[in-house]
Each structure stands twice: as structure tokens, then as C-alpha cells.
Nucleic acid binder design. Structure first.
Length: 116
RNA sequence: AGAGCAGGGAGGGCGGCCGCUGGCGCGUUUUUGCGCGCUGGAGGAAAGUCCGGACUCCGAAGGGCAGGGCGCUGGGUAACACCCAGGAGGGGUGACCCUACGGAAAGUGCAACAGAGAGCAGACCGCGAAUUCGCUUAUUUAUAGCGAACGCAAGGGUGAAACGGUGAGGUAAGAGCUCACCAGCGGCCCGGGUGACCGGGUCGGCUUGGUAAACCCCGCCCGGAGCAAGACUAAACAGGGGGGAUUGAGCGCUGCCCGCGCGAGCCCCCGGGUGAGUCGCACGAGGCGCCGGGCAACCGGCGUCCCAGAUAAAUGGCCGUCGCCCGUUGAGCGUGAAUCGCCUGCGGGAACAGAAUCCGGCUUAUAUCCCUGCUCUGACG
RNA sequence: GCCCUCAUCGUCUAGUCAGGUCUAGGACACCGCCCUUUCACGGCGGCGACAGGGGUUCAAAUCCCCUUGAGGGCG
């Protein structure tokens, strides 16, 4: 398995999230909504995760975020470089297992990158 | 063996691969950063935010009113609405459990419906051969009967609640009207206890209801906001518009007053910009062990340990194995027979729940398992 | 994270502070009947709620405590 410690970064600024929500490309699923856009300057792919209180309590939200990050790392090699990704959880994800979440993210990524 | 009471504890272990995050060291790099190694990384409730503090700012934390909280006694504590010990009342056969448990003869208020009457109460049915009047019998009186006035509150009935209970005397009928005992209230005295209170004696008037999680009275406590508090650095926008007040105005920490402070340019609203980083931020009323004091909560001494610190926010994913629980396979074993236990194979399950300034409590949620002490019932000895 | 507010028929609300005439009132909606040739309007009647649990009280939508669910503010 190739080493993948370095090859992504995290989104940290509120303005970057808002920019993706307004300008980014979207892919809707039952459990998640994925926003994405290619940065003009390129670089490493960056991930942001958003889980609102509507999803559930703190335990559920934390588990959901871990599932989403784990899914992102699983398909990191399929993401073209220079993309910013935000994965938003939808309320139904609270009762899903990890394999279901991973499948959802895989399908959403497929739709998101299909045009490229 | 069954049922139960009280207290305490655990909240899966080990290993592999891939990852996340804090610290330290080394290497590399102009720096940000990156790599490697070592090491730390959720809970008993981290939760609800219901109390109490620490801490920070508001002026140095002042006074009064208003407002809020608490409420048997003694102790513990930084503090508490918490904890410990005790008292009283109530519940349970019992082990034990529960209690916002000051004051209703300081005052005000409230009590629907029903009922005669609901707070210095009242008379519907009823009771009444005393007293007065009328009528009937009747010459009149007496007697008897009926009705009314009047007297009474024992009995019936209403209600959540009806102004002590039982017995005797008393009376026309009755009534603490009188007496005995009992219950309850108040005063005084004696004894025990730090105290709440307990035990006993004596005297008194004969009884004086409920509600204070209604207002209130009494005693004690509380200034307000909250780490998104607050301090600093950097960057950026603007140097704007409207209004107020104009000399003891205005402002300064909830409402008012006093007091105090600032005080010539101030205040309020609108609009605009940045919304990045450092500190606060983890050594503390700290954990563990031993000894001593105390019934206990807890306190003191000594030794030892450093044990999460993010900021779109860290503990996860996959797998192996052992242990636990549930279901099930087996002409297996205890065993003679099992629905009981053990072994074996297969399948499934493992709760409540995730630190965000930090502590002490309370409350609520919690699969399963373990330990200690005690009670009741049944059987056997 | 910290600090607040609210919860009543299907919907919007009155009543809550000062507990009792509350088997909780009104409007819209819904159902049935009347009116009309029919629909609408109008009239009459009906259905239908105190978020859940406990406590105080003779008595709780109202007072107190806990839980649950919505909504808001603070950098």
C-alpha cells in the first residue's frame, strides 16, 4: 500500500467553505452532498467535512466525520490533483454503516469527476 | 433455595497493518513546513447546564431599597441547594427507606360544587311535658293533643375539611355546663443532651381548623456579566451619515436612590473593514500509597507521579485471538434421568455515551458482570 | 462552548402573573344538516388540545422539580 501521509491538506477557513458552496460543482447522494472545485493554482487536494446538528448528537457527529474522512482517504488516488472537496452529511447518514458511507462517497466522487 | 434491602467496583484484554492529534529529541530547510524516533491521547456520567466556587473584566467591589435564593439540629468544606452524624414525622413483617421539616393565638387573602352553616359559623330534617301565645276537648282550671314563638346542637344528612374522644352526672331537651380518664395546646419547674429534642412533674383555660411550592413575617446568604470572559500582535477599511446634550449636563457595572469616579469634547444609532495569530490553556481545593486524628463526611503529615489540550475541532478503519452473554448442533460428560451445569461445532450480540477554562456537587441515561454486609419466607440438620 | 426564551384542538391563538363558575373559549379548516336548480356566501350542529413524568394542595393548563422537543443571542 502506498504511503499517503502527505498527499492531502485540510480546509480550514470559513471563506473557503462558503466559496465552494456558492461556486463549486455538486453531487447529491442519499447520505451526503459533495461540493468540489479545481483550484486554478493546482496543488494538493484539500478536504473539508461538514456535519450539522441535525445529523444527531455529538457521538453520532464525531463518528460520521471519521467515516467521511476514512472514505476520502480510501479514494484519494482517484481524485485529480488541485481539487478542493467538501463533504456534507445528510441526516440519514446517522444510521448507516461505514461500508454504506464509503459506497455513497465513491458514487458521489464518480459523478463529480465525470465531466473531467 | 426463593424474594428483597443497603453499600462499593468494572464498563472487555492482547497482537498486526493503515491512519489522526499534542509534546520532546534529531535531521533537513531562509521561513512556514516536512521526515524519522520516543512518548501522551475521552467518561462515570465527559451529558443536562440545575447549584456552588476559582479565574477575568466591569471603578477600589461601597451603603440602602427593590429583587432572588435557602430554611429541624450539630459538624464538614474554598463554597453550596451538597456530604456526614443526629432529632422529629411518615411508610414497610423486616433489613431499611422517604421528608422544600421555621412561623397560620403579626396581619391580609383564598376554599369552586354541595350544604342550614366554611371562620369570633350555623339550624334543613331533628330533639324539647321549662317559659309565652293561639286552637281543639271545654263553664273554667288542670290534663292531653296540635301549631307557633323560643331553647338546643346529641343524632341524620352535605363536603376535602363542620370547632376534641369515651363514660358518668346534669337537664324540658341539651351542651366542657360539671367531673374522671385520654388526645392536643400554653406557662412554669426538675433531669439528660453542645443542640434540634427527649423523659418526668405541676398549673391553666377548656380546644384556639387548612393553605406560606398565596402575599407575607423571622433568620441567614447573594453586585453584574461570563474564557465567544479578557490581554496582546498583525492586517484591512474608514476618518463617513443621522440624532442627542449643551455646563454640575453626560457617561461609568441589571431597576431606583445615595455615595464615588471620569469629565471637554462626549454619548447613542446607522454604515464600512478585518473576522488571521499568540497568550489565557492545564501543576490542580490534583491523583496514588502509607501513617495519624475523627462514629463519619473529612482533616493533617510523609513519600511518589505528571496523567488530553483541539479550534471546520484529534481515539478511527480492516483483521486475528482470548474472555463474556444469547440462541442452537451433538446416541458427548456430570448421571440413573434432566428443561441444570460442563465440553464441542456454528451463528449472533456487547449499553449509555465524545473533553473545549478548570474544579466540588446535584440530576438524568446506562447492556452485562463482580464483591461485601444484612433482612424475610420455606426446607433440612 | 456559554447564556436565554417558548411549548394549549389539524393551524393561529385566549386563559398561566394573583389555582376553583375550564366537562379549556374564539377564528380558519374538516364532517353532517338546512338554504339554493347547483356552487359559493349564510345559518345550525358535531369532531378536536393543556409536550411527558413526579410533587405541593381538598383541587393544577396555572405553583415547584426533572425529562423531551423547538427557537434565539454572544466571537
Amino acid at each position: 500500500m502506498p504511503r499517503r501521509g502527505v498527499d492531502y491538506e485540510r480546509l480550514r477557513l470559513v471563506s473557503e467553505y462558503n466559496h465552494l458552496y456558492k461556486r463549486g460543482r455538486r453531487a447529491y447522494g442519499q447520505l451526503v452532498v459533495v461540493f468540489g472545485q479545481k483550484k486554478p493554482q493546482g496543488g494538493l487536494p484539500r478536504l473539508g467535512v461538514s456535519v450539522s446538528r441535525k445529523v444527531g448528537k455529538a457521538v453520532v457527529r464525531n463518528r460520521t466525520k471519521r467515516f467521511l474522512r476514512e472514505s476520502f482517504w480510501a479514494f484519494l488516488s482517484e481524485i485529480p490533483s488541485g481539487w478542493d472537496i467538501v463533504i456534507c452529511a445528510r441526516p440519514l447518514i446517522a444510521s448507516a454503516s461505514f461500508s454504506e458511507v464509503r459506497g455513497e462517497v465513491k458514487r458521489a466522487f464518480g459523478r463529480l469527476f465525470r465531466a473531467n
